[in-house]
């Protein structure tokens, strides 16, 4: 395999591995920009993965699976919102609860329904999102040297939710920056009292953001189970929700940098998989774990202020209570 081919393959798997991270990162970004800290991204993706796999299996339609995944993640989002917004509970605690609920419920129901230790049956045909070949992909590969290969391998050939996810980044960035709703979200995460006195409902905005967060987690989870894999496996999110959280912090709560961080962490994962069991001259067996731990370590170093500075929205994590 020549170098270009190798790069193309790695970039292709980078995108595949990044999609769930990007979805969850956008989800976390919405929630936290509105002032609701969400460490339950992991759980919401997990339950979406489960619900989408079950629905896709039962109906035979991947798209119904996507709908079910989104609904399931939305439900957990509302639980979080109810605790964090309506009852002004501790948002971290609520996030922990969401994660535990998702882990437990998916395995119990998966096991009760299919008896395979929590797995769902394998998805085939239209029950799974197939790869979409973009126009001219084959043609470009043959006729355009270099770029054609990249276009075919990397840009083309992903499942529908992947393209939806990338679209969501654009929509997120646009909405936050250029729309009324986005302005209000940015405001409510910084100073909810300002929003309240401007005659806008703080709770309404925050529920809106938390709902969008659920929707995006739903897409991410569905991608995992119905596009990347052919069914649900217990614990299949495997910390991606937390890496996404790291990506949000890394991006300083901004959409395009969050896309970048998601891709970077996806690349690290792709490289780690590629180097599994590979012996490099001088180094020996590559310590893949070191690469896997890198996103987490980088986040800790960043948070420590050794490189750059992470400034979360000022009101994030704080329930809004009217001052007397």
């Amino acid at each position: 395999m020549d170098l270009l081919q190798l790069i193309a393959v790695i970039l292709d798997s980078t995108i595949r591995l990044s999609i769930p991270l990007i979805c969850a990162a956008m989800a976390g970004l919405w929630s936290e920009r509105a002032g609701v800290v969400d460490i339950g991204l992991e759980g919401k993706m997990l339950i979406a993965a489960f619900a989408s796999a079950v629905a896709a299996f039962v109906t035979g339609s991947a798209w119904v699976g996507l709908g079910a995944g989104i609904l399931a993640a939305l439900a957990l989002s509302l639980v979080h919102g109810f605790a964090a917004i309506t009852w002004r509970g501790n948002q971290i605690v609520s996030g922990v609860a969401v994660n535990m609920l998702a882990v437990g419920l998916t395995i119990i129901f998966g096991n009760a329904w299919y008896g395979q230790g929590g797995r769902t049956p394998s998805l085939e045909g239209p029950a799974r999102f197939g790869e979409i070949t973009l126009p001219f992909a084959r043609w470009a590969r043959e006729h355009v040297p270099g770029l054609g290969l990249i276009y075919d391998e990397v840009v083309s050939g992903h499942a529908a939710p992947a393209y939806i996810a990338l679209l969501c980044v654009f929509i997120t960035a646009f909405t936050l920056k250029r729309t009324r709703f986005g302005l209000r979200i940015r405001a409510v995460g910084e100073n909810p009292a300002a929003v309240d006195t401007a005659g806008i409902s703080v709770a309404g905005l925050r529920y809106g953001a938390v709902g969008i967060c659920g929707l995006l987690c739903g897409i991410g989870g569905t991608y995992l189970a119905v596009a990347q894999s052919a069914g649900f496996l217990p614990h299949m999110t495997a910390g991606r929700g937390f890496i996404a959280l790291a990506a949000v912090i890394f991006a300083n709560w901004r959409p395009w940098p969050a896309l970048g961080a998601g891709l970077l962490f996806g690349l690290l994962d792709a490289v780690a998989i590629r180097l599994q069991g590979v012996t490099l001259p001088g180094i020996g067996l590559v310590p893949v774990e070191a690469i896997q731990a890198l996103p987490y370590l980088m986040t800790v170093v960043l948070l420590a202020g050794f490189i750059g500075k992470a400034t979360p929205p000022r009101a994030s994590g704080l329930p809004y209570v009217k001052e007397r």
């Binding site: 639980v79 509970g89 948002q91 609520s94 609860a97 969401v98 994660n99 437990g104 119990i108 929590g118």
Partner: peptide
């Protein structure tokens, strides 16, 4: 009814006794 039921109960408890 697998033992993961405990995780569910734990989650609900964290929600009820903590966040709610």
């Amino acid at each position: 009814i697998t033992r993961d039921m405990v995780v569910v109960i734990g989650g609900v408890l964290v929600l009820f006794a903590g966040a709610l």
